[in-house]
Amino acid sequence: MVLSCTDVRKTFGANVVLDGLTLDVGEHEVVALIGASGSGKSTLLRCVNLLAEIDDGVIRLDGADITDPRVDPDSVRQKIGLVFQSYNLFPHMTVLDNITLAPVRVHKRSAAAAREQAMEWLNRVGLADKSGSYPDKLSGGQQQRVAIVRALVNSPRLLLLDEVTSALDPELVGEVLTMIRDLKGEGMTMVLATHEMGFARQVADRVAFLDKGRVLEQGPPEQVLGDPVEARTRQFLARIIEAGRL
């Protein structure tokens, strides 16, 4: 198992966001987290990346407990990539500097090597001509692709994607989803929180439906999205279909 969450609990005051959540993710596996707003998808991703501290349970990365307070969080985060809903690019840096910051400062690569690697990635995703631009000159879809590249150049063991298309105009969603599909083809292990059920069906090996801070139901996309066992999953999907999102 690359990632293994066991009985994870996370509260914000009286609000229990994760309530004994258990989820395993294997090597080269892509798991889509679905569920209503507030079901704990984003919180789980933040906890895995140690941006939020859990209140109980264990999270393991490659078998090692990363929620042990004796573990250096920076060394854990170096192995996990996280992409945010609102991109969170650094507005005062060019696209190239955004991408090479961590390779140079954290992984101590030479500036030239980092630049070369960044340009290779930008070429692949068709953004090489934007390398000297500042983020505010890019469309949302371009910014999000840069954000994904920024996470990938650190060669993470695990890539977490937090509703990466939710802030995008509909016509820009496709370019980001294509990129994620390509990553799956290369065997990247990914956990993605998403509202795009059609995409979850295409790209995920497994879909996990989160409800009230637990994984209520999980399985192959055809089963969970097509023929769910749990009543609450059916309700959720019915609402999504009504909203025209499936």
């Binding site: 933040r46 990346n49 941006l51 969080p73 920076d74 060394s75 985060r77 170096q78 996990i80 990539g81 996280l82 945010f84 609102s86 969170n88 690019l89 650094f90 910051l101 961590a102 400062r105 954290v106 992984h107 920024r150 996470a151 650190n154």
Partner: peptide, 16 residues
């Protein structure tokens, strides 16, 4: 704070 979250998620230390 999302800027700090982005920086930390890349493995940068608090000082960096």
């Amino acid at each position: 704070p999302s800027q700090i979250a982005a920086a930390r998620s890349l493995g940068l230390t608090y000082r960096q």
